[in-house]
Amino acid sequence: MEKVIEILNLTKTYGNGRGIYDLNLDIYKGDIFGFLGPNGAGKTTAMKIMTGLIRPENGDVKILGHSVIEEYEKAMAKVGCLIEIAESYQFLSAFENLKQIARYYPDVDYKRIDEVLELTGMYKFKHEKTKKFSLGMKQRLGLAAAVLSRPKVVILDEPLNGLDVEGMIDIRKMIQSLAEKEQTTFFISSHLIHDVELTCNRIGVIYNGRILNVENTDAILKNYATLENYFVSEVERNGRVSSSAS
């Protein structure tokens, strides 16, 4: 299997004692990797380091063989991402927002903009100004922006936040389709256990800034009734929380 993302001994701590400690992960081509953990577990910190928004105290991240710290432009050249909140120019339409982003990518034309708007269920709103959008619509537009350039790697921090049930299903189908048809690799963080179970083929549990285990979703569900049961078992086995913490 082709290794696409390597997280090597990654450490970043804050004054309140939170952070991440000696994270090591390998993500492979075509993976939909679910980074599962509660709020405050360290998911966003890790993903901000992965996308160059903050620097670690120790360790490195390599994307497609390039260090995010030493070769940032090369590492991020084929990466799409959405970290935390999906931002937009409120007085521009959905189409116009994506047109601004498309200026950075010579191979992205207006046809591609329409394609990603269709993929994310936003085509019918393409001419509406984003100031009128709901949280879920803004999230869909942010996801359209993340896949606009046909990236080989997509990093998404809580991508289903703000989406209704229909939106969750649409985005899940989009992610699974891109992974299957184009071998796009997804790294997705979430605290929504059920959605991770339905979306991801591999799962890493993070708790208190440390990776507890990484396993294939199919293997987990052969041994546990649900991903929630697996999560509780992992944190209990590692002496982290009681069974009521899920």
Rank of each mutant, 00 (worst) to 15 (best):
R18K: 13
A86W: 11
R18S: 13
T130F: 05
L92E: 03
V154H: 08
K99G: 05
R18A: 12
E96F: 04
I83R: 11
T44N: 05
P151N: 09
V165W: 05
R202Y: 07
F231E: 10
G42H: 01
Y207D: 13
E70S: 03
T217K: 13
V154L: 05
R150G: 04
V232Y: 00
E73Q: 00
A46F: 05
K131E: 14
E6F: 07
D26F: 14
R237K: 15
Q176P: 14
N16F: 02
I171D: 07
L178S: 06
E115C: 03
L64T: 01
A225F: 14
T184A: 07
N39A: 10
E71H: 01
L148F: 03
Q100G: 06
K124W: 07
H127C: 06
A94G: 11
S93R: 07
V241F: 14
M1D: 09
I69S: 06
V232F: 00
T184H: 03
L36Y: 05
V154Q: 05
Q100N: 11
R172W: 13
Q139R: 10
K12D: 04
K99P: 04
V241N: 13
G136P: 10
I83E: 07
N208H: 12
G80V: 00
V196T: 10
A219K: 14
H66V: 00
V214I: 15
R140A: 01
L221C: 05
I27M: 04
N208L: 13
